[in-house]
């Protein structure tokens, strides 16, 4: 992995993005196993219908997991200083998630040169599911 360089980066620069496969019921089952979150809202069609909800929907933290992968595909994980997300919309089965990020600030934090990134996980229509930010230390 070529590590991004602080001096070469400018505010507004995008980091490499990706679009996920459609989130399927299998994805949610896999995430339930991986995360340990087996809440029936994400897995059990009969349960959600009994609650008046038409279909199961994705775990919010699945989307944050995708954004985490966006970061670790860009820098080694040890460079990530902080990472936070606000959940703004629910992800439905069948949606592909477009994960993007850009540099919004260059800063010095605790004696390290860092960049602040704004990250978004949105569907293909542009509806943001999660808005996140991260601070990454760069040489």
């Amino acid at each position: 992995m070529t590590k991004p360089n602080y001096d070469a980066l400018n505010v507004g620069d995008a980091i490499p993005s990706f679009t996920t496969e459609p989130v399927s019921r299998l994805t949610l089952a896999l995430y339930a196993t991986g995360s340990g979150d087996h809440h029936p809202l994400h897995l059990d069609q009969d349960y959600v219908r009994s609650k008046g909800i038409p279909d199961v929907f994705a775990h919010g933290m699945l989307g944050m997991g995708y954004l985490g992968r966006l970061l670790t595909q860009w820098v080694p994980q040890a460079a990530i200083r902080s990472f936070g997300v606000r959940f703004t919309a629910i992800t439905q089965v069948g949606e592909r998630l477009v994960c993007t990020g850009k540099v919004v600030e260059k800063l010095e934090q605790a004696g390290e040169r860092c960049v602040r990134l704004e990250l978004t996980c949105a569907n293909e229509q542009g509806e943001a599911k999660h808005k996140a930010d991260a601070v990454v230390a760069l040489a």
Partner: peptide, 13 residues
């Protein structure tokens, strides 16, 4: 468990 987490999030590293 981390293997399943990686599979769910599409992690290939």
């Amino acid at each position: 468990q981390l293997k399943w987490f990686a599979k769910a999030t599409g992690e290939t590293n």
